[in-house]
Amino acid sequence: MARIVVITSGKGGVGKTTTSAAMATGLALEGHKTAVIDFDVGLRNLDLIMGCERRVVYDFVNVINGDASLRQALIKDKRTENLFILPASQTRDKDALTEEGVGQVLDELSQEFDYILCDSPAGIERGALMAAYFADEAVVVTNPEVSSVRDSDRMLGILASKTRKAEQGEGPLPSRLLLTRYAPERVDKGEMLSVEDVVEILSIEMLGVVPESQSVLNASNAGMPVILDKESDAGQAYSDAVARFLGEERPHRFLTAQKKGILGRLFKG
């Protein structure tokens, strides 16, 4: 049986797809057979972030409608063993994601995979609700910014009441926070909410903090999950988050501003 994980946020543009791509790749690198599904019907983008956009033939909705088998629609990642992508449909509308259809696809995937990551669309409409409904746990992606934090709280409310687990009386969906685009030097200046602030407001366990980093844009430009950029701070932060996700204890890094050494200060580089 696979473990189903929804990557969600409420607000758009906070890094759900970047996180889905990075975490799916990280889990596969650790030897877990992983599938990552794009639930953003009509606005497919996971394929582009994973660099497999030219290999899409069939999509999630084709499988739901029985036009293609899962085997035909799943794209095997070229860089990472054990990793498969199920792209979203670009043309259908969101109503194509029926509870029955999504449930069947997830059941079939569960036979073969260790982890299924559901990359949720923004908002709290059908696509987002379906991405979360069958999940065993959630990763809530948040930026240290007022609208993102508020939307995350709203999403946590939905995860606590509108998922299958909640409906079956198993209580709120276990959810952890991934804080992205974190800029410690701006936090020090009092210009940005700190990790502690966000944890206090949302009362949620922290899975990881990903620093604001040029490497994220570089990776998406190249169609390569940023976790594969092992030199980069963001890549390392995602590796840490995956390790924590798998139960390892790792201290949080990249929480403090890089202090410039005396030479750095002299030459103001």
């Binding site: 007022v146 508020r150 709280d153 709203r154 409310g157 009092g190 909410l193 602030d197 407001i201």
Partner: peptide, 18 residues
């Protein structure tokens, strides 16, 4: 600071919405 204002506003609105 503006971060302080953000935190205070969020605490109020989040409590209300919950």
């Amino acid at each position: 600071t503006s971060a302080r204002m953000a935190k205070e506003r969020l605490q109020v609105i989040v409590a209300r919405e919950r």
